[in-house]
Design a protein around this nucleic acid. Structure first.
Length: 156
DNA sequence: GCCAACGTTGGC
DNA sequence: GCCAACGTTGGC
């Protein structure tokens, strides 16, 4: 079996929250419109583990875990003129944007707020904490991933 | 609401 | 290929 990879995905809770994913069980991760983030989406394999991050929240932070349940396929919202994610450069014959399906794994009893993650020396070098980092889909090292899960357990 | 950081666009 | 202008992200 191939080694499972680890990632972090951001969502604004007003758009789609961990509570929404808990309710839905799974969802398609549409709307990624950044090439670097898209390339990471296309690298994802079924079973890869995801940190679910609430951006533009009070406070922002990691709120739970999800997993990849379907590998990358064309993001058809790009073809929909009424969608906020519409992008005329992407067509059915030649898709530009992709999405995966993600499944709910767990919601942390308490969110891990960004300011606390910033203070943690064990998370040094994490992409999320890099100054000016805006990537909405990013790889996470296993060590950083495991440490964050451990922090979540410690809080409960 | 502000603004720093970043990505994209388009003129040249 | 350079780079200024612009739009977006996202913390604060």
């Amino acid at each position: 079996m191939a080694t499972r990879r680890h990632w972090l995905v951001k969502s604004e809770p007003g758009t789609y929250s961990i509570e929404d994913l808990e309710r839905d069980g799974k969802t398609c991760w549409e709307g990624v419109r950044n090439y670097q983030a898209r390339n990471f989406l296309r690298e994802m394999k079924v079973g890869d583990a995801l940190l679910f991050y609430h951006s533009s929240a009070n406070p922002p932070g990691v709120v739970g875990l999800a997993e990849v349940v379907r590998e990358a396929y064309p993001d058809h919202f790009a073809w929909d003129e009424r969608s906020p994610y519409h992008d005329p450069r992407s067509t059915e014959d030649d898709p530009v944007w992709y999405m995966v399906d993600v499944g709910f794994v767990e919601r942390f009893p308490e969110p891990l707020p960004l300011p606390e993650l910033k203070k943690d020396p064990a998370l040094e070098g994490m992409e999320l904490l890099r100054r000016g980092s805006r990537l909405s889909v990013q790889p996470v090292s296993k060590a950083h991933f495991d440490h964050i899960v451990k922090l979540a357990r410690r809080r409960s």
